[in-house]
Amino acid sequence: MSGRAQRARHRARWAWAVSTVVLVLTAAACGTTSGSNSVAAQARSGDRKGYVSGDGSVERIDPANRGTPLTVAGPTVDSRIWSLQDHPGQVVVLNVWGSWCPPCITETPELDKAYRNLTSRFKDVSFIGLDTKESPESALAFIRANRVPYLSLAYDGGERMLSLNGKAPATPTTLILDRQHRIAARVLGPLTASTLEGLVEDVRAA
């Protein structure tokens, strides 16, 4: 083999080696970058979108283990005043949500369907939303755009969330309160209308 051919082969091998190293370093950078969208950062935070969402798991609580009644009250996103005390003897569906939360958006039509079905059949069932981590203006814009038929309490920095006794660790969370306003059932994550209607019917019948 001539000297010119050997030098050409050497240059080709060198170029291949350099390109391989560049590809490896690039792949490593994509996998280990310290930015908020990296896989490592997502794993450390426990989520991918700045929120923790449940998997739709359902919990039913026996009457003997339901604890004390909740006391939830305050201004709504449209500047009204709402209180559980104004709904004595009613089964109340309380949905924790945010317009920034994709699973909340997904379940909105299901909540709307359940609301219309249940409240048309039963006069002792009420719904209330509990907006979280956004301004009343953002929440109200979403409610109006999606024609949500029930009120939502405005975000107050988290004080009302504390009144839920740690039962709403995910967004969305739906709590079904019995006639004494104790937590009787819970869905962590997005739900379907049929699931919610079945839970409410069970709580009413208990």
Results as ranks from 00 to 15, higher is better:
60 R>I: 11
125 V>E: 00
40 A>R: 15
68 T>L: 08
126 S>P: 01
71 T>L: 00
73 A>K: 14
30 C>T: 09
52 V>E: 07
119 T>H: 05
44 R>K: 15
76 T>F: 02
53 S>D: 14
57 S>W: 07
70 L>V: 04
83 S>D: 09
128 I>P: 01
127 F>E: 08
100 W>Q: 00
96 V>S: 06
86 D>F: 00
74 G>A: 06
107 E>T: 03
39 V>I: 13
48 R>E: 14
112 D>L: 10
46 G>Q: 09
95 N>S: 10
99 S>M: 05
71 T>N: 01
138 S>H: 11
128 I>E: 04
93 V>Q: 09
37 N>F: 13
61 I>M: 12
101 C>P: 06
129 G>C: 10
76 T>D: 03
90 Q>M: 07
73 A>H: 13
58 V>Y: 11
98 G>M: 01
47 D>V: 10
115 Y>A: 03
84 L>A: 03
122 F>Y: 11
110 E>P: 01
54 G>K: 11
48 R>F: 15
57 S>E: 08
47 D>I: 15
70 L>C: 09
45 S>H: 04
115 Y>F: 08
127 F>G: 07
95 N>K: 12
47 D>N: 14
80 R>L: 11
93 V>K: 07
116 R>D: 02
116 R>P: 00
33 T>S: 15
85 Q>M: 04
139 A>N: 07
70 L>M: 13
138 S>T: 15
54 G>P: 15
36 S>L: 12
107 E>G: 00
61 I>F: 15
121 R>P: 04
130 L>A: 04
111 L>Y: 00
136 P>L: 01
137 E>C: 07
122 F>E: 01
116 R>Q: 12
130 L>D: 04
112 D>G: 05
119 T>N: 07
94 L>M: 01
124 D>M: 06
117 N>W: 05
113 K>R: 12
78 D>N: 08
98 G>C: 05
57 S>T: 10
60 R>D: 06
109 P>Q: 00
72 V>I: 13
110 E>Y: 08
49 K>F: 14
89 G>M: 11
91 V>H: 03
108 T>R: 06
44 R>Y: 03
127 F>A: 00
137 E>S: 11
92 V>T: 09
59 E>Y: 10
34 S>R: 11
135 S>T: 13
102 P>H: 09
45 S>V: 05
126 S>I: 06
40 A>D: 08
104 C>S: 11
42 Q>L: 07
109 P>K: 01
114 A>S: 04
105 I>Q: 08
45 S>I: 01
123 K>C: 09
82 W>D: 04
37 N>L: 14
127 F>M: 01
44 R>H: 12
96 V>G: 02
135 S>E: 15
32 T>E: 07
139 A>P: 05
76 T>V: 08
108 T>A: 14
123 K>S: 13
84 L>D: 06
32 T>H: 05
41 A>D: 14
36 S>G: 10
39 V>T: 03
124 D>C: 09
41 A>V: 12
86 D>P: 02
98 G>K: 06
58 V>R: 14
51 Y>E: 04
33 T>P: 13
116 R>S: 12
62 D>Y: 06
38 S>R: 02
126 S>G: 08
87 H>M: 09
103 P>L: 12
103 P>E: 11
125 V>F: 01
47 D>T: 14
62 D>E: 10
76 T>E: 05
133 K>Y: 09
